[in-house]
Simulated assay, not measured.
Amino acid sequence: MSVLLAFDQVDAYYSQARILNGVSFEVGAGERVAILGRNGVGKTTVVNTLCGIADIHAGAIKLGGKRYTDVPHYLAARSGIAIVLQGRGIIPNLTIEENLMLGGAVDRPGRWNLDTVYELFPILGERRRNPGLGLSGGQQQMLAIGRALMANPELLVLDEPSEGLAPVIIDELAELFRHVADEGTAIMLIEQNINLIQRVAARYYVLSKGSVTESGDLAGMTTQQLQDHITI
């Protein structure tokens, strides 16, 4: 199994504030991995480090067999990684279709294009000419996911995708993520919703105070054990 993404003893900072302290984890091709932890422990900083927003002061990120200590904003996309940001990141002055087309700007080959995304999310096709922010919260999350899939990624990174969504929508997302994973796309799920974690992920890492404190398989883990990991 090839490794798509690895953090190797990463210390990550915003200015002079250290958020990640020696963080190490990896996601291999086709894997479904969850990053667990309560609010404020550094989960989103993992994403921001991958995006070049947080600075690496020690350690490195490994992508495509190469080590990077200075991460430009475009590196993840060029390396076959698509990210669904917390808060969705819909561009307000663009239509639904224009938002989707942004995801295809990296021009990677694969099955995902406007037609296949509209097949997956018919509501987006019906409203393709409407503003992206004219959708409900759940529909905006569909748009954010569809835009990420348009990049035909090897790894799909999801930062708190259930945030603010009704349970029925979360159930739909779980089925969607399993469908995407079954077609060969690896998933890195940063999440606190236990139902979504249990239905999507196979392995986990726990972040606490900016460090990885535990890792393992989710198989056989009880809901209470998982809850305990999230509240560390």
Rank of each mutant, 00 (worst) to 15 (best):
E126M: 06
G110D: 12
N39C: 08
N39S: 12
Q9L: 02
R199V: 07
L4S: 08
V200I: 04
G110K: 06
R108K: 15
A181W: 06
T213I: 15
L207S: 09
A201T: 09
S15F: 12
I123A: 05
G184W: 04
Y13E: 11
E154Y: 04
A12L: 15
E163I: 11
Q225S: 13
A58L: 00
P167I: 01
V41N: 04
Q139A: 00
A76D: 14
A151F: 00
G28V: 07
L102Q: 09
L94I: 10
A12T: 10
D70K: 15
R88H: 03
I90R: 05
D228G: 11
Q141E: 07
I170Y: 10
R147D: 08
A202V: 12
A144E: 00
I169D: 02
G89T: 13
Q141K: 07
H73A: 12
P153F: 06
E119H: 13
L226G: 04
Q198C: 04
E31S: 15
Q9I: 03
A82E: 04
H73D: 14
G59V: 04
E183A: 12
H229A: 13
E163T: 13
D8M: 13
L149C: 03
Y204I: 03
A54L: 13
P72S: 03
D217G: 09
T95F: 03
G52A: 02
H179A: 10
G59M: 14
P153V: 02
G132D: 13
L176G: 02
G220Q: 10
F25D: 06
G65K: 14
N130K: 07
R127G: 03
G22F: 07
L143Y: 06
T45N: 03
Q192S: 09
A186V: 05
G87V: 06
I83V: 15
Q192K: 04
R127C: 01
Q198H: 09
E172W: 14
Q227E: 15
S2G: 14
D217C: 03
V157W: 00
G184I: 01
H57D: 01
Q192Y: 09
G184R: 00
G22D: 08
L176R: 11
R18Y: 07
I35S: 00
P161T: 07
Q9H: 14
L158E: 08
C51E: 15
Y68Q: 12
E214P: 02
V41G: 01
A166R: 13
G125R: 05
M1I: 01
D171P: 14
T231S: 08
K209R: 13
L50Y: 01
E175W: 13
A151S: 15
T222H: 10
D70G: 07
P109H: 11
I91F: 14
N195D: 12
L63K: 05
G59Y: 11
F25P: 04
R129W: 11
A201Q: 10
L156G: 11
V41R: 00
A82D: 04
L36G: 03
E214F: 10
V23G: 02
D115K: 10
I187F: 01
L156H: 11
G40A: 12
M221I: 11
G216N: 15
D70P: 09
L173Q: 06
E31R: 01
N195C: 05
G134S: 13
V10C: 14
A202D: 14
Q192R: 04
A12R: 02
K62S: 12
R78F: 00
L207Y: 11
P92I: 05
G59F: 14
D70T: 15
L20Y: 10
G103C: 03
L36I: 05
